[in-house]
Design a protein around this nucleic acid. Structure first.
Lengths: 212, 212, 212, 212
DNA sequence: GATGAATGAGGATTCATTCAT
DNA sequence: TATGAATGAATCCTCATTCAT
């Protein structure tokens, strides 16, 4: 009735809502990882979250909205946790170091959040869901472009873009291999992924340096 | 009474069946490409083929059987058309040439048969379908291993295997990029794919040569 | 072209047709026994007979026609094989003997032709198939009535009919128990069936004799 | 905040569910009676209940679960309504009375719940549904054995069991005849059923008494 | 907000039956 | 006749989504 009630009531509700949303997204992560986006059912997500289907729809208008929100949060979290992973490196940083740390950080993040892969991946992502996918994709590519621009100054934008796409492709391929392994084999594949990227970029970086 | 009447009658019928099967597989290819395996419906495949659902089930016991048969045919076709694409190269063949021609051939095949990619791809492949997927995968990896063994004699088998997996990953990543483009951009991505592979393998090949 | 060709051609065809029909009915028997009438599929029958579905429909207009024809043939066969099993007995025949031999003969027949039971039985017999069932039923009841009339002269027709229905019910119940057993147990159940019938009929027969 | 809000809200919902279940089981009863279990379709049951197919599956995972639950409820109801119908009779009870009342009670129950018969009956019961059927059957046979043991003390177990099976067979046969009639005819068949059972058991009971 | 019942279109699959060959 | 391909309605069942409470 007073200010408090008008501010704290909603806040409490929002807090509860946030908890619910987090709970649902966590459940969705697990289900998406297990069955893939297409085969995941909203009922299964609700069940996994321990709530009723109706509750799920109180927070998300439909299935893809869950995936989109999940993607957004992942991007946020990534930005916060490893914000500078892909930021332009200081001039003079050796390529190996730049790539190595970027891959390490990304791999760590993706290993901790396997949904990321499930969402990034897959041509069977149907309908409007593709938007979320594309958006995520575009963001990541943009960040890679920024990194590459600092590594290969003077390179044409089109080439930067293409190289960025290739790098992301290599990374995703490596990630898939990594996620399917454990222990020493996993570490070996992480190293391979770095090697592929380094060897791929080395001549490009060299050329741009020579040009500069 | 003559050979014709006793042999061609059934043959004609069989021919009709074969045509239907081909037609259904073609339809399935398109649907799988468009929607992915999981989301593809047998009714949609039948509709695309212009037949009733019952007809589809006259030739295939279930959805996965279609995918399996499709995979088998693709493998056959690949073997026949580009049989030696991945066969061990003559000693002394420059790496660039070996990789270049292998990638060209594969890309050509995959561009002509985009389902291949749809079937190769995707961790959300459910049920017993995964078998088919794995089998296809194993076959391809095996062929790459053979190629690598001839390129990098004396390398430990475990390393060969890992390298083969990485190469396949790179190729698939490249393919995905290529398939999403047209014309000059597509050609550029083909070249990038080759470059990635060549630069990745060059040191390995060199090392094994030095050792030999 | 001569008489021979006009008579023997059809005859040969009829002969072939008869063989086909017999073959199909045999297959149907097995399928009906295994899965029951409702769950039996015409395709399964055709497969069991080693012919195509089309062939089956060349001889039978639909599924129930198969059952009807099967029932008819069974009745014929029964009549031929054990024609007098239920015919009125000679006056003075002890009830035990009359019942005993009738049950023995029927049981033998039904044991040899388990379809009979499958067709007689069951409230899930749907649609027009019920006709066949009813017809068969009516025939059997009629024969039992004849037997009872000779055993219980002077009894009202309504009572005879009711008693006949009860006897058939007892017999079918006994048969079900018998068919589910083997060896000594089976023999014991045959005896029980006879006992039930004899004890049920004895007072009725006695009463009618006293009356006469 | 009060008990009412926290307990009755869910209760009301549960109540709705219970009503639906009852409604669905009632509809299932009718459909099973009309078409038999095998030919009964879940859609038909849902339609009969006036709900959508999805609703049915909210409460039952599949068709057989409906039949099983139906059987369970019938058994419960039977136990509650006529709990002692088959319980051992007081020593000295005339056989006619024991049988008469047991048959009356059972017939009354089965007449009120014709599904019981539909579920008891039928060798074409497929799949895991057979379990339910067998369980029901076993329960009933057990109760008859108990009754017979009290009527025929000193009889070998194997004989008791066989006699129980025969009695159940007779009863089911009688029931089938009874259910197909109305009014006076029905009553007459009830009496016949009793007579058959009494005459069948009389000598056995007498023998065991003589022995005792 | 939360619940869970309700919906109904859609998916895989089967099957009696027909038809071209 | 025989074949087997073709049909399409009907089955069982699922799922995204809505709604009354």
């Amino acid at each position: 009735m007073s200010d408090t009630s008008e501010k704290e009531q909603p806040r409490r509700r929002q807090a509860r809502g946030e908890r619910r949303i987090a709970q649902l997204l966590k459940a969705a992560s697990q289900v998406f990882c297990t069955t893939g986006y297409t085969a995941a059912s909203t009922n299964a997500i609700a069940r996994e979250a321990g709530v009723s289907p109706g509750t799920l729809y109180q927070f998300f208008p439909n299935k893809e909205a869950i995936a989109i929100e999940l993607g957004d949060r992942l991007m946020h979290e990534m930005r916060e946790a490893y914000g500078e992973a892909l930021a332009p490196v200081a001039p003079g940083t050796p390529l190996e170091e730049a790539i190595g740390s970027a891959v390490d950080r990304f791999m760590a993040f993706n290993t901790d959040h396997p949904v990321f892969f499930a969402l990034m991946h897959g041509p069977d992502i149907p309908g409007r869901m593709a938007e979320a996918h594309d958006q995520l994709h575009t963001t990541v590519v943009g960040r890679i472009e920024a990194l590459l621009t600092s590594l290969m100054p003077g390179t044409a934008q089109a080439d930067i873009t293409r190289t960025a796409h290739v790098c992301l492709g290599i990374y995703k391929a490596g990630l898939e291999l990594v996620l399917a392994r454990e222990g020493a084999e996993r570490a070996a594949y992480v190293q391979e992924t770095k090697d592929v990227l380094i060897r791929y970029l080395e001549p490009l970086v060299g050329a741009s340096l020579g040009r500069a």
